[in-house]
């Protein structure tokens, strides 16, 4: 059987060039995923109308949905290319596949975008535990299994960008830092040592681009590939910033 399917990819040669789209005919085989398709295109970059092209640039690394590299918009939905099985994707779209880069970040080339803004947001919310140093100071504080079960899911955030891509509040006109950074602030505020810098993080969340810019569309939690309870974090951030501002107003 020589079945094949068409993948249409939105391409862009560099940040200043116009967008264009190219289609590729890919021979079907069972077990394909989107990254394999992109690998096949890289190996033989010939379009559907038999023109030779260049390999499509894309990000990928672990291919196990744990590094967060290969985020792209496939058939209108943002997701990881490695876990996008072609069989499932074809079912959604009646035989044709449409691939675009994420729209919320500057395109570098083709499907590669620059997600630096997300990492900068992590700096803004001070997403770290400020330990005294890396010499031996004994073990860390005790943590109940319950606290660990709350923290672990938040700590699985791989900064892939799905949440901000689907967030209608994260765009050029709005200063919103996005669900991922809010959730990280909540993660470190819950850490027994991280708690010490809690107010600094809440101050950022109370400021421009902070929690007040969330519009509760709740897309983030639905597109998150790691099933992180982002909306829980957002609601907690709402509560914590309110209490923090009250404390601040009444002089702690």
């Amino acid at each position: 059987m020589s079945k094949s399917f068409t993948v249409t990819i939105q391409r862009q040669d560099d940040p200043h060039s116009p967008k264009y789209s190219e289609s590729f005919e890919i021979p079907y085989e069972p077990g394909l995923n989107m990254t394999t398709v992109l690998q096949r295109i890289a190996a033989t970059p010939v379009t559907s109308d038999n023109k030779s092209s260049t390999p499509v640039a894309y990000d990928s690394c672990c291919l196990e949905e744990i590094c967060g590299a290969c985020t792209m918009v496939i058939n209108g939905r943002v997701r990881q290319a490695c876990s996008a099985l072609i069989d499932n994707v074809l079912e959604e779209s009646a035989g044709a596949i449409d691939v675009k880069p994420m729209s919320k970040f500057p395109v570098v080339r083709d499907l590669v975008v620059n997600r630096k803004a997300m990492f900068e947001s992590l700096k803004r919310v001070k997403a770290w535990v400020k330990v005294d140093g890396y010499h031996d100071l004994g073990s860390g504080p005790r943590v109940s299994p319950h606290e660990q079960e709350d923290a672990y899911p938040l700590s699985k955030c791989m900064t892939c960008g799905c949440c901000v891509e689907a967030c209608p509040q994260f765009n050029d006109k709005s200063p919103f830092i996005g669900p991922a950074a809010v959730s990280q602030a909540i993660l470190f505020n819950a850490n027994p040592t991280g708690k010490i810098d809690r107010d600094e993080r809440l101050e950022v969340l109370a400021g421009p681009g902070g929690i007040a810019d969330c519009g509760n569309s709740q897309n983030c939690v639905k597109v998150c590939p790691k099933d992180i309870p982002l909306t829980d974090s957002i609601a907690k951030a709402g509560r914590d910033t309110t209490l923090y501002k009250f404390r601040q107003f009444f002089g702690r």
Binding site: V131, Y134, V143, S144, P145, Q148, S155
Partner: peptide, 22 residues
């Protein structure tokens, strides 16, 4: 043992026993 202690202090979400130990 000291490497693990350090990681613990850095906030690694190690699984816990009911007493709160790693």
């Amino acid at each position: 043992p000291r490497v693990i202690d350090l990681l613990d202090r850095l906030g690694v979400t190690f699984n816990r026993t009911s007493e709160g130990l790693r």
